[in-house]
């Protein structure tokens, strides 16, 4: 049986920091400044990075990923090697990861920091990769004696907001958890509107990963379960409103959908939100983000129909009901629907 990853159990054991200078594509004269040793961690720093990782991995933008077998990225091989070998050659392998990142970056690249963490989650090994962009003036100092960066400086930069665009990937071994995914990713840049798929250079080119599960299937399950949940809600007007909301949400111009986001944005009562979460839990549907693909349900979400007990039905296109059909609950339990328009056609 699959085990759930419990982010509260993350333990930061070892950490290596590398520094990426600002560079342009193909600028070969420059190269990353590598640590030759792991950085020294205090208990406070362990907790600081743990908090940051947990916050990112638990966020609405985090989702499950798998390694893409067609990728040219060496990250899959390196991550599995480190995990299998109890973290041996962590520094050497982390340098290879950083070099790969440096080489695939295109265009003008801001200076950055790569933090590679070796630790545990649910008592199993994990590798966590953090990518930060840093401000021009925010420099890291390489200690000439230890040949490592002072990790305290990274914390200071993060606290003073001199770093931005925080990307995190956390990898595990599938067998440890008996799961079919390789890790989780959180990338604040993930919702790039002009792209058609959920992918960024961080996930695809750098990590060599893609989203876990077919987005078509996940989107369909999300839609069906959410519709089924609405049937448990008393009150036809609430149900009608929520169905319209779901149709709007599912057709919004975004690459990721998230039941948590839907609950917070559309379900008006906190009790409905709690019950919705419990309902999806019973269906084993994760309350986390997933890539949107509505191709399987497009025809369902384009139209909405309300059928009345007196055999009269009203059909409308998405977004039309809310403004054009006025529903009102009457004291005798009936619902009054008011449509004010000219008759266009009778079929």
């Amino acid at each position: 049986m699959a085990k759930k990853i419990d982010t509260s159990t993350i333990q930061i054991e070892r950490i290596v920091v590398h520094d990426l200078p600002k560079h342009k594509k193909g600028e070969l004269a420059l190269e990353p400044k590598y640590s030759e040793q792991e950085s020294i961690l205090t208990d406070g720093l362990r907790l600081f990075f743990k908090d940051k990782v947990v916050q990112a991995i638990s966020s609405d933008k985090s989702f499950k990923i798998i390694f893409n077998s067609d990728t040219e990225s060496p990250v899959a091989y390196i991550v599995n090697h480190i995990l299998d070998s109890d973290g041996s050659e962590l520094v050497k392998q982390s340098k290879t990861i950083t070099k790969h990142l440096f080489e695939i970056q295109v265009g003008n690249n801001a200076a950055g920091i790569v933090v590679i963490i070796f630790g545990k989650v649910n008592s199993f090994h994990t590798i966590i990769i953090l990518k930060l962009e840093r401000d021009k003036g925010a420099q890291l100092t390489l200690d000439p004696l230890t040949r490592s960066f002072n990790i305290q400086e990274v914390e200071d930069l993060m606290l003073t907001q001199k770093t931005k665009i925080f990307k995190v990937a956390m990898f595990i071994l599938r067998d440890d958890f008996n799961v079919k995914f390789d890790g989780l990713i959180m990338d604040y840049q993930i919702e790039i509107k002009e792209k058609k798929e959920v992918t960024t250079w961080f996930m695809d080119k750098f990590l060599g990963c893609m989203a876990f599960e077919d987005p078509k299937i996940t989107t369909q399950k999300f839609y069906n379960y959410t519709r089924a949940f609405f049937n448990t809600i008393e009150g036809e007007l609430d149900r009608a409103k929520y169905i319209q909301d779901l149709n709007s949400y599912i057709q919004k111009n975004a690459l990721l959908l998230n039941p948590n986001e839907f609950a917070e944005d559309y379900l008006v009562s906190p009790e409905h939100r709690d019950n919705y979460k419990s309902y999806l839990d019973t269906k084993k549907f994760n309350f986390t983000a997933f890539p949107r693909d509505i191709s399987q349900i497009e025809k369902h979400v384009k139209k909405i129909m309300i059928a009345f007990e007196n055999d009269i039905s009203i059909i409308g296109n998405k977004g039309t009901f809310e403004n054009k059909v006025k529903l009102e609950k009457l004291e005798n339990g009936n619902t009054k629907a008011e449509v004010i328009s000219k008759i266009k056609n009778i079929i």
Binding site: K4, I5, D6, T7, S8, T9, I10, D51, V54, Q55, I57, S58, S62, K64, L184, N286, T288
Partner: peptide, 11 residues
């Protein structure tokens, strides 16, 4: 929020 981070999330 801090208390929630400590409890973590089951994924």
């Amino acid at each position: 929020e801090q208390i929630e981070i400590l409890w973590g999330k089951q994924i």
